[in-house]
């Protein structure tokens, strides 16, 4: 019985650490037509503590993409190795 519990826990751990989930949510949309430029501002957090730049705002993403007219904005959250590594991205589309 103990061995079975251990094995089930092992499967759960492997599934959690091997999984990579991604969730995209809409943030904003304007009346501008959907342009062919795209800018991404992102930050990666390890254990929710360690991470790079925390500036992942719309302004940063638009600057990186050279966008002056924003059509819409998405927010993407990605998780790797379960909850250990998480990447947050602001994606700005426009012209």
């Amino acid at each position: 019985m103990k061995k079975t519990i251990k094995s089930v826990m092992l499967i759960a751990a492997v599934a959690m650490f091997a999984s990579c989930s991604s969730m995209t949510t809409p943030i904003a949309a304007t009346s501008n037509p959907v342009g062919n430029k795209c800018g991404v501002a992102s930050t990666t957090k390890i254990l929710g503590i360690f991470g790079g730049s925390s500036n992942m705002g719309i302004n940063k993403a638009a600057k990186l993409g050279g966008i002056t007219q924003i059509s819409h904005v998405d927010f993407v959250k990605k998780s790797f190795l379960g909850f250990l590594v998480q990447t947050y991205q602001t994606v700005v589309y426009g012209e």
Binding site: T4, S7, V8, L10, I11, V14, A15, A18
Partner: peptide
């Protein structure tokens, strides 16, 4: 179970 784990991974 070990096989399932490796497969899932």
């Amino acid at each position: 179970l070990l096989f399932i784990s490796v497969f899932v991974f």
